[in-house]
Simulated scan of single mutants.
Amino acid sequence: MHEETLGSGIYLPEIHDTVFNRAEDAHRFEFNGSARDYFRIWIVNVALSIVTLGIYSAWASVRTRRYMYANTLFEGSPFEYLARPIPILRGRLIAAALFATYIMASHFSRTLQLVTMGVIGVFMPWMIVKGLMFRARYSAWRGLHFRFIADYGGAYQWYLLVYMLMAIPLALSGLLAQGGHPFTGMVLFLAGFFLFYPWLKGNQQQWMAEHHYFGGKSFRFTREPSAYYRIYGAALGIGVLCMIPSGILMGLMFNAMVKSHIDPRQHSIPVLLATYLCIAPTYLIMWTYVHVRMTNALYNQASLGRYQFESSLRFWPMLYIYLGNVLAIIFTIGLAIPWAKIQVARYRASCLQVAGEGRLEEFTQRTSGADVAATGTEIDSLLGFDIGL
């Protein structure tokens, strides 16, 4: 939760957006980073990561996050990222080994590949908890560290068992399709997906938020289940509307190929690129809408003590930023990536604030003692790692 708050990588008409309007004091976030300064860090990171075959990427992540955190201010004070690269590197090596094992298993037998995928799925909730613990432990503001309290039972419940339940409609839809009822199978799959998935995402946000602590106090989360169904229902409607022009473009393209006596199988790469070009805008619009609404839902339902978070991200400004970023990255062959990240971080920070009565200085002074006592009992960083989740 804290990472999105810091703006270092923070998740159509704004109907049903939950935006609070309160009379209490508002404490706003600011982001003061510049594309020129970040470009110097980024270009060195890319060069050294290439030269070292990716090993330097752990150091690159630390440098990037430290820059982003240091340029994100709350009440005039910057955030701090205090992690060291070695635990991050160790975590990435473990993740790379798991992925390599999965790829290698596919060359031997389908059964071995499925077993490997199952083993990875069993370990994934554990890795999610470890990653959240690591990020929280090494994130701080005014000398106070965030904390994530390990809850492996909750992680396995919301990141494994519920997904296994969601697989039941998928399996049944596959059986119906094989039995000659593909339409019925598709309806069953969509019904199962939209019944479980919004409910699942709401519970995942609540689990993540309520296990984060800052200054000796835990974050609280007041979940509104219907909000998640509205978000994904609207996203589905947007996707259907966007697929109409995409489908027309694809139809015109294939019709032109038929008239020109062009065999798509002999020009698979151009056809594939043209298909992606038709579908990409739909994906970007849907992803942006869900990302904006889910980010607002996360923060607007979260509180810390008597302080309430307020997120006011809007779809159209965010889509405009993303479109500009995509075009800039394409036309500069990737050199505009630092500028794009700075644009997104600045907008996200500008749309986030904390409302509540009193002074934050009093809150941090009153709770600092509890945080010191708690951090003294945490495990050493050798047992924590970050896999970039």
Rank of each mutant, 00 (worst) to 15 (best):
Y229T: 01
T282N: 12
M253N: 03
L284D: 08
D263S: 13
C278Y: 01
L277G: 12
M208K: 00
K217E: 04
A209S: 11
I231N: 05
L252A: 15
F219Y: 12
R230Y: 13
N255G: 15
L252D: 14
Y283V: 14
Y232P: 03
P270I: 09
F219W: 08
A280Q: 10
G215D: 03
L284H: 09
H211D: 02
N203T: 01
S268F: 14
V240H: 07
Y229W: 08
Y232S: 06
M286Q: 06
Q206E: 06
Y229N: 03
E224N: 06
Y213T: 08
G233Q: 01
H211F: 07
Y229M: 01
E224R: 12
A235V: 04
S218Q: 03
I269E: 06
W287M: 15
Y283D: 11
K217C: 07
P281E: 04
P281I: 04
P270A: 08
C242H: 11
W199R: 02
T288V: 09
A235N: 06
R220G: 11
N203R: 08
F214A: 02
M208P: 01
M243F: 15
A274N: 10
T222K: 08
S268C: 11
D263E: 14
I238A: 02
S246K: 00
P264R: 06
K217W: 07
L277A: 15
W199H: 02
G251D: 15
G202C: 06
M243E: 11
Q206Y: 00
I238W: 12
C278D: 02
I262S: 04
L236R: 05
S226P: 08
I244C: 03
L200N: 06
K259P: 09
S260T: 10
E210M: 05
M257V: 05
Y232W: 13
R265M: 13
C242P: 08
I285F: 01
G215K: 09
N255H: 15
T222N: 12
V258N: 13
I231G: 00
P245W: 03
Q205N: 09
G202V: 03
P270V: 04
W207P: 03
P264D: 01
I269Q: 07
Y229E: 02
A234F: 12
G247D: 08
P198E: 07
C278T: 12
R220A: 12
C278G: 14
I285H: 03
P245L: 03
S260W: 09
L252Q: 14
A256F: 09
I262E: 07
V240E: 05
